[in-house]
Nucleic acid binder design. Structure first.
Lengths: 339, 339
DNA sequence: TTAACAGCCGAAAACGTTTTCGATTTTTTA
DNA sequence: TAAAAAATCGAAAACGTTTTCGGCTGTTAA
C-alpha cells in the first residue's frame, strides 16, 4: 500500500513527472488531451499532493497561528469562531495556543509558531506582557502579524480593537441618563490597557455630566471574574450605602455583584442599576437580565483574519504593506439591570 | 538576509552537512569536539531546522487535528483547553476545526486534516453524523484517531466518554431522594446518543424507585439552549400543575427554565427542584445556584490527547495498538436548586 | 527552401533535512 | 609489528514537489 505520487501517475501514463505536475495545475504548455488523461488517472488513484513537499517547495504552510490568553472564555471563543470560519474558507488552518495570561508562555509560543513556519500570527496579549521583544522578533522576521483586543502600542503592526474608553463612556452615561447620581466602578487590574481605558471612560463620563469623581468608589478586580465581583460588591456594601449605580468591567463581575445584591435584599435596578461589559450571552439569562456593552467577538475574529490575509498576500507578491488599525463598533444593550 | 541551514553551518566550519546534522542530534559517531563546535556555531547563527524539510523527511508533522461541534461552548472549550495544554507539553500543536454540528462540514474537515497529514485526529461528532464513511477512511489510512464525548459505536477506535446514562440516573435519583414525586425531563433531540442515554437514565431511575414513567412529562429541546429551556418550561407550566422536580439535559436549558419559574412566582426549589447537567461554571452564579452533574471537560481533553499520543507512538514503532475506551467519572454537585 | 514560430514535452535543479553505508583514520590487541 | 577494532567522517540517496530552461516536432511566413 504505497503512497500515490506524481511519479506513480507519470509511470502509469508513460510521461514525465513534470508534465503530470503541470497538467494538474493547468499550465498552458500542456495539451488538453494529456491534461484530461492525467486528471483522470489522478482521480482514479485518489492522488493527493504531499503537503510536506509542497510546503518545502513553496515555502508556505497555509497555516496560521493564534495566541489567546484563555480558551474557556466567551469573548475569546467567539473570536476563535470568527477566525477559524473565515480561515477555512480561504484554505488556511489555524493552530491555537493559550498563553494563560502568562508572558513567559506567550514568548515560548511565539517561538513555537515561528519554528513551525506559520504564514502569519494573530495574537491577543497576556495582561502582563510589557516586554515585547518576542513580538518585535516576529516583525523583524517579516512574518505577517495582527494583534487584536489586547494590543501593544509599541509594536508597529495591524490592530483590530474596540474603543474601550468610548464604550465605557457610553455605559456610564447610560447609568447617568437613567438617573444615577453615585456611580461605583469595579475595574480590572492596573496594568492592562483595557482596564485603564474603561476606567478612563467611566471617569470622563462622570466629569462631563457634572458628577464629582470619587476614587473611593472604584474597586479593583484582579482576575475580573465572578468571585471578584462578589468580593468587591461585599466591600462596596460595607463601605458605602448611597450607591445607586455600578459599572463593572465585565459581565462576569457584574453577575457576581448582582448575586450579592440579590442575597442582601438590595433590588436591582430599583435600589442600584448595574452595567456589565461584553454582552456575554449568559447576561440575558440571569435575573435580572444584564444591561451591558456588546463587544463583537465574532466580527473581531473575522476582521483579524481578513487583515492578516491581506498582509500575507502582499508579502507573497513582495508588495509593501502598511499596517492598519480597525476600530469595531460596540453597542449599548439595555436590559433589566438598569432603569 | 538568507536562511540559516545545515549547509551554511557546514561551510562555515569546513565540514560536511552530514556531520553537522548528526552533531546537532547527538549521534554517537561524532566526536565531542566537533559536536561542541557545531552547536556553538548553530547557536551563534540562530539556526532553526526547517520544519518543512523535517516533515518531508520524517513523514510526520508533529501536529494533530481536533474537530468539535462548537467552539463557543463551555464544555467543548474546556476540552480544548485540556487538549492543547498537554499537546504543547509533548511538542504537538493542535489545529482546531468546528463542524457546526454539520455532517457535511465534518466530512470536509476530516479530508482537510488528512491532506494536511496531521499525525492524529481527535473528534467529537456532529449530532447528525450517522453516515460514518469519512471516519472509516481515517481508520483505513491507519491514522491514529480518538473520539470523545459524542462518539459512534460503529467505529473501532479509542474513545473517551462519560457514562451519560448513569450520570442521568444519579441526577434523577437525587431529585427522588430529596422528595420529588412528579419529575419532568427536558431532553435533547431524538438522535444524539447523549440525549438518548440521559433520557434512559432518567427513566430507569424512576422505575427503580417505584415512580411510574409518564411520557407526557418529557419535553424535547432540539437545540439544547437557553431559549429551548424557556419554551419547554412554559409548555410544561401550561400542561401540568403538579410537577415538583425537573431534570434538564443541560445547564443552559435548566437556567432557561429557572428564569421562567422565577418570573411566574414558582419557587425553586420549594415548589420545584431542578437539576442541570454539565456543571457549566455559570451554574454557580445564577440565583438560585444550580444543582447539576459535573462533566469533566478538562480531564476529557487531557485523556483524549494522552490516548492519541499512545496510539501515535505505537504507530511510529509499528507496534499493534488496541483501541481503548475510557469512561470518566462524573460527580453530583448539589447546590440550591434542589432540596 | 529556409527561417521563424507556436505548441508540447522533459531533464534537471532546487527546497533542507535524515540516514545508510562505506571510507578513512586512530587506537587497541595479539 | 601486524591485524583487528573502534572512532570519526562524508558521499549520496531519498522524501515529493515546483519551475526554469532548453529541445523537439510540426506549422506558417518570407
Amino acid at each position: 500500500m504505497k503512497e500515490v505520487t506524481l511519479k506513480q501517475i507519470a509511470e502509469n501514463l508513460g510521461i514525465s513527472i513534470t508534465t503530470v505536475s503541470k497538467a494538474l495545475k493547468n499550465y498552458p504548455d500542456v495539451s488538453k488531451k494529456t491534461k484530461a488523461l492525467v486528471k483522470e488517472e489522478a482521480k482514479k488513484l485518489h492522488y493527493k499532493p504531499n503537503v510536506f513537499a509542497v510546503n518545502l517547495r513553496t515555502k508556505q504552510s497555509k497555516t496560521v497561528g493564534l495566541i489567546i490568553p484563555e480558551v474557556v472564555h466567551h469573548f475569546f471563543s467567539s473570536v476563535v469562531n470568527g477566525i477559524i470560519e473565515h480561515a477555512e474558507k480561504k484554505g488556511y488552518l489555524v493552530i491555537i495556543l493559550q498563553s494563560n495570561e502568562s508572558y513567559k508562555l506567550e514568548q515560548k509560543q511565539i517561538d513555537l509558531l515561528i519554528s513551525k513556519r506559520v504564514d502569519g500570527i494573530m495574537i491577543s496579549l497576556a495582561s502582563n506582557s510589557t516586554d515585547i521583544s518576542h513580538l518585535q522578533e516576529v516583525r523583524d522576521l517579516n512574518i505577517p502579524m495582527v494583534m487584536f483586543d489586547k494590543i501593544s502600542k509599541l509594536i508597529d503592526c495591524s490592530k483590530i480593537i474596540i474603543n474601550d474608553r468610548k464604550a465605557a463612556y457610553v455605559a456610564t452615561k447610560h447609568l447617568i441618563d437613567s438617573g444615577c447620581k453615585r456611580i461605583a466602578h469595579f475595574r480590572g487590574a492596573l496594568l492592562p490597557q483595557n482596564s485603564i481605558d474603561r476606567f478612563l471612560g467611566y471617569k470622563k463620563a462622570l466629569e462631563d455630566h457634572g458628577i464629582q469623581y470619587d476614587p473611593s468608589l472604584v474597586y479593583i478586580c484582579e482576575r475580573v471574574d465572578y468571585k471578584d465581583g462578589i468580593e468587591a460588591a461585599k466591600k462596596l456594601m460595607s463601605e458605602h450605602d448611597d450607591i445607586d449605580g455600578l459599572f463593572c468591567i465585565t459581565d462576569l463581575v457584574a453577575i457576581g455583584a448582582i448575586s450579592v445584591f440579590n442575597d442582601n435584599g438590595i433590588k436591582v435596578p430599583d435600589d442600584i442599576s448595574i452595567m456589565g461589559f461584553s454582552n456575554w450571552f449568559i447576561s440575558s439569562a440571569i435575573t435580572p437580565s444584564l444591561s451591558t456593552i456588546d463587544q463583537p467577538g465574532y466580527k473581531m475574529g473575522k476582521a483579524t483574519f481578513k487583515t492578516l490575509l491581506k498582509e500575507m498576500k502582499a508579502k507573497r507578491k513582495e508588495l509593501p504593506f502598511k499596517p492598519i488599525t480597525k476600530v469595531l463598533e460596540t453597542k449599548l444593550v439595555v436590559r433589566n439591570s438598569t432603569k
